[in-house]
Amino acid sequence: MEIQAAKYLAAGIAIGLGAIGPGIGEGIAASKALEAIGRNPEASGRITPLMFVSMAITESTAIYALVISLIILFG
Protein backbone atom coordinates (compact mmCIF):
# COMPACT_ATOMS: atom_id res chain seq x y z
CA MET A 1 0.00 0.00 0.00
CA GLU A 2 1.28 3.40 -0.86
CA ILE A 3 2.01 5.73 2.02
CA GLN A 4 -0.35 8.41 0.70
CA ALA A 5 -3.22 5.94 0.46
CA ALA A 6 -2.51 4.78 4.01
CA LYS A 7 -2.61 8.39 5.17
CA TYR A 8 -6.00 9.00 3.58
CA LEU A 9 -7.30 5.78 5.08
CA ALA A 10 -5.94 6.61 8.51
CA ALA A 11 -7.38 10.12 8.43
CA GLY A 12 -10.82 8.81 7.49
CA ILE A 13 -10.76 6.12 10.14
CA ALA A 14 -9.52 8.58 12.76
CA ILE A 15 -12.28 11.10 12.26
CA GLY A 16 -14.89 8.38 11.74
CA LEU A 17 -14.11 6.53 14.93
CA GLY A 18 -13.57 9.76 16.84
CA ALA A 19 -17.02 10.99 15.87
CA ILE A 20 -18.79 7.94 17.33
CA GLY A 21 -18.25 8.80 20.98
CA PRO A 22 -19.27 12.44 20.80
CA GLY A 23 -22.26 11.49 18.65
CA ILE A 24 -23.54 9.17 21.34
CA GLY A 25 -22.59 11.61 24.07
CA GLU A 26 -24.35 14.53 22.47
CA GLY A 27 -27.41 12.38 21.93
CA ILE A 28 -27.46 11.51 25.61
CA ALA A 29 -26.97 15.14 26.60
CA ALA A 30 -29.80 16.28 24.32
CA SER A 31 -32.15 13.54 25.50
CA LYS A 32 -31.50 14.31 29.15
CA ALA A 33 -31.93 18.02 28.56
CA LEU A 34 -35.21 17.46 26.73
CA GLU A 35 -36.36 15.17 29.53
CA ALA A 36 -35.54 17.87 32.02
CA ILE A 37 -37.42 20.47 29.96
CA GLY A 38 -40.37 18.11 29.70
CA ARG A 39 -40.40 17.69 33.42
CA ASN A 40 -39.89 21.34 34.16
CA PRO A 41 -40.83 23.52 31.17
CA GLU A 42 -40.23 26.79 33.01
CA ALA A 43 -36.53 25.99 33.29
CA SER A 44 -36.02 25.62 29.53
CA GLY A 45 -34.43 29.05 29.34
CA ARG A 46 -31.73 27.92 31.77
CA ILE A 47 -31.36 24.39 30.43
CA THR A 48 -31.03 25.11 26.70
CA PRO A 49 -27.83 27.19 26.84
CA LEU A 50 -26.28 24.79 29.32
CA MET A 51 -27.18 21.95 26.99
CA PHE A 52 -25.44 23.66 24.11
CA VAL A 53 -22.36 24.34 26.18
CA SER A 54 -22.12 20.79 27.45
CA MET A 55 -22.67 19.46 23.95
CA ALA A 56 -19.88 21.70 22.72
CA ILE A 57 -17.59 20.34 25.40
CA THR A 58 -18.62 16.79 24.52
CA GLU A 59 -17.70 17.61 20.97
CA SER A 60 -14.09 18.16 22.00
CA THR A 61 -13.20 14.54 21.40
CA ALA A 62 -14.40 14.71 17.83
CA ILE A 63 -12.43 17.89 17.39
CA TYR A 64 -9.28 16.19 18.64
CA ALA A 65 -9.96 13.45 16.13
CA LEU A 66 -10.37 16.08 13.43
CA VAL A 67 -7.07 17.68 14.39
CA ILE A 68 -5.33 14.31 14.41
CA SER A 69 -6.70 13.42 11.01
CA LEU A 70 -5.61 16.80 9.66
CA ILE A 71 -2.14 16.17 11.09
CA ILE A 72 -2.11 12.73 9.51
CA LEU A 73 -3.16 14.18 6.17
CA PHE A 74 -0.83 17.15 6.09
CA GLY A 75 1.67 16.57 8.87
Binding site: A56, E59, S60, I63, Y64, L66, V67
Partner: peptide, 13 residues
Protein backbone atom coordinates in the same frame (compact mmCIF):
# COMPACT_ATOMS: atom_id res chain seq x y z
CA UNK B 1 -3.00 23.90 25.17
CA UNK B 2 -5.86 21.54 24.42
CA UNK B 3 -8.20 24.39 25.28
CA UNK B 4 -6.71 26.48 22.50
CA UNK B 5 -6.95 23.63 20.02
CA UNK B 6 -10.43 22.55 20.91
CA UNK B 7 -11.86 26.06 21.13
CA UNK B 8 -10.44 27.14 17.80
CA UNK B 9 -11.01 23.91 15.90
CA UNK B 10 -14.57 23.66 17.20
CA UNK B 11 -15.60 26.89 15.55
CA UNK B 12 -13.46 26.40 12.48
CA UNK B 13 -14.40 22.74 12.08
Amino acid sequence: IAKIVSLSFRLFG
